[in-house]
Nucleic acid binder design. Structure first.
Lengths: 173, 173
DNA sequence: CAGCATCCATTACGATACTG
DNA sequence: CAGTATCGTAATGGATGCTG
């Protein structure tokens, strides 16, 4: 996600914070208020991809674009800007004709690479197991829903986060 | 969230001397297609929080809600459902009055906890450095942008991402 | 207590067109 | 080549009200 969100989960907690109610969560929420935006960055659609690609070495804009494959120019620009802003990548402009811009991880960026690769590897290793779990879950959900029989209420599933998830990609036109 | 590259020609060879060697490049894109949804899940607004809290032990719905602090019921439900669907948490209903539902990490969920905590710790350790980088970046951006009357010199950079978020940079005070 | 359903605002993202 | 500007759409997520 973009770093734009003004609302971090902690605001409400503190607004409601009863001094006597004694929620043990105070330090936790304060902490995650700082951590949350970083996690949002990690989890947005392209950051991890970009960082891992840059982890192989410096790259120019369109090279990155081509390598990554599905990213729009806009999103690559935005992602790189955010990363630059966070001090995770450097942007070096060579005043040539045509212009060349090279992106590279900073030291901080390389340190991020380590846990990021760990997550990626976890995802890689457990992707099949997760898919299996999903299918199992969906099968049970379908069985538990006596939808058939004529009355089809609107839609069936909200599909907000859960069931859907596999769709929506424009390949090309 | 999911870059379902249905195509992505495997035309590219890495132009930067990547330690890729003989591995076909399309392997990478196919792989990240599987990895991407997992990363999206990780990066959504609440998953990491929920997983880390559950990492401490099983918890009931409203306990979780209270602990986390800023989460709406809807999002907690949705997040837990997704996690359950992915086989990362179990949901146990006790047929008491009033009903009790307990959530706990599965084995898979606990294995996820490891890299997730690594990321969280990274975020924690580098939050200040990132904030500093952001302020530095924003300062430069502001300096490059003449707010009034001045010279509109080329080189005045980003207005795309920057402006909108400096205002909201502070999460809580 | 746990949880769905509905409405609604904000945001993310892709496509497209234009610039230095 | 490497962007920027603008638009439309889809997804995200909060608030509220209803259920067993």
């Amino acid at each position: 996600m973009k770093p734009g969100h003004s609302h971090v989960p902690a605001t409400q907690a503190f607004a409601n914070g009863i001094p006597n109610g004694g929620t043990p969560a105070n330090h936790v929420t304060a902490e995650c208020a700082r951590v949350a935006p970083v996690l949002s960055r990690i989890g947005d659609k392209w950051t991890v991809l970009v960082v891992t690609f840059l982890g192989r070495g410096p790259m120019r804009f369109n090279a990155l674009r081509r390598e990554i494959g599905g990213i729009s120019q806009r999103m690559l620009t935005l992602t790189l800007r955010s990363l630059e802003r966070d001090g995770l990548v450097t942007r070096t402009v060579y005043a040539t004709v045509p212009p060349q811009v090279e992106y590279a991880l900073t030291e901080l960026g390389r340190s991020l690479l380590i846990p990021v690769l760990a997550i990626r590897d976890w995802a890689r290793q457990n992707a099949l197991q997760i898919e299996a779990a999903q299918q199992h879950f969906d099968a049970l959900a379908a069985a538990a829903r006596p939808a058939c029989g004529g009355v089809a209420h609107t839609g069936g599933r909200p599909s907000a986060v859960g069931v859907d998830e596999i769709a929506h990609l424009q390949s090309e036109r």
